[in-house]
Simulated assay, not measured.
Amino acid sequence: MGGAPSFHGISMVNITKYRDRLIHCIDPVARLFAKIGLTPNQLTFISLMFGITSALLYVLQHTYLAAGMLLLSGLFDFIDGGVARINGKTSAFGAAIDWIIDKYVDCLVLIGIAFSGLADPRIAAIAIFGSMINTFIKPVTYAEMGFEKKENGKIKDPLEGVGIFGRPETAITLIVLSLLNQVYWAVVIIAIMTNFSAIERVVYLYRHMRGRGKT
């Protein structure tokens, strides 16, 4: 597919929009892991293990430890991209599996909270739905409308900055409110804001991509 459409007029941003700036802040840590010899995929796997541990700790209602494990999961997820860039080992598989692992962690943690009794399982289900659909919009857009630009092995597009509440905001909300013993409200916020962000993306696509397709 050629002649990929351009995106303009983004009105709202999220933390992901600044990922490229932030990733350079962890370069010293990424270089350390690169020197040790850990590959980006190994770091992604470590991120998954911390995410699973976080989910299990939420089930057991150890919220402080769960928040700590979720923070470590996010940090390793962030570092893997830096290692890939430093080593020049970006790959289509690595980019895809990183995306998949991210959603596994998000969903497992919310499922763990639902089983823990710390939040209403019905609200947790809405939060999971919002998290998934907010992400699902992007691959649908790439497949149906076309977008090929990549940086460091990952698709790079302004849709990253559309929607006020993305994956980083979800993790930060869970971590901070878990430390404040307010897991219930964290899930409520995630349920509302992820779905709101999904609507933002749909509205954006309607306004800017209506009538356009792959060329």
Rank of each mutant, 00 (worst) to 15 (best):
I97M: 13
S91C: 05
I97D: 00
K103R: 15
I111G: 05
D106Q: 14
L118D: 06
W99E: 11
I111H: 01
A96W: 13
G94C: 04
C107M: 13
G112D: 09
P139Y: 11
L70H: 10
L57T: 12
S47C: 10
L60S: 10
F93L: 09
T141P: 04
L72M: 15
Y142M: 13
K89V: 08
L70R: 12
M145H: 13
T141Q: 13
I97Q: 05
D77I: 10
A143S: 13
A127G: 09
I133D: 12
L72R: 00
A92K: 11
S54H: 07
S131M: 09
T53L: 13
F78L: 14
D80E: 08
F136H: 02
I111W: 04
L75V: 15
F136T: 11
G68K: 01
N134V: 06
I79H: 00
C107R: 04
A55H: 09
V59I: 14
T63Y: 04
V105M: 03
D102M: 08
W99Q: 11
P139G: 13
M145E: 08
G94H: 05
T53G: 14
Y104A: 10
F50G: 07
L70G: 08
F93G: 01
L71G: 13
Y64W: 14
L110N: 06
Y142D: 12
S54W: 03
I137T: 14
Q61P: 00
L57P: 01
L57E: 12
G130F: 10
I128A: 06
I128N: 03
